[in-house]
Nucleic acid binder design. Structure first.
Length: 103
DNA sequence: CGAGTGACAGGAC
DNA sequence: TGTCCTGCCACTC
């Protein structure tokens, strides 16, 4: 069980309509210092159809610019379709849609 | 094997 | 309030 596997497992647990921050995923994966690794893990993203990487945003609720599976608009669209609330500035309303990790 | 880089976070200035 | 600097882990050159 590598760190990547843990990260993927956590990301896969993110329920539909909710989002998690890199720090949150890193913490659930076992170590809060793995935020960068989380980013790298999602960057390589071996299973785009299985790992909802679009549900992972930075601590500001802003989506990553270097998104590789369809662009920022695609990520925003996918999240919106799942019920995630976006603010006017294009950021996710973390106060309402942040995954608590209890699921 | 050593150095550099990266979808980040947190604390400091 | 906003921006800069550092720390961490894994991966590539």
């Amino acid at each position: 069980m590598t760190v990547f596997d843990k990260i993927y497992a956590v990301v896969r647990r993110i329920p539909r309509g909710k989002v998690a921050t890199y720090g949150q995923v890193a913490l659930l994966a076992g170590n809060p210092r793995w935020a960068r690794v989380v980013g790298y893990a999602l960057h390589v993203n071996p299973a785009p159809g299985e790992i909802p990487c679009h549900r992972v945003v930075n601590r500001d609720g802003r989506t990553a610019k270097a998104f590789a599976f369809g662009g920022e608009d695609m990520q925003r669209l996918l999240l919106t379709q799942e019920g995630v609330v976006f603010r006017a500035d294009g950021t996710v309303d973390l106060a309402a849609c942040l995954w608590d990790g209890a699921s």
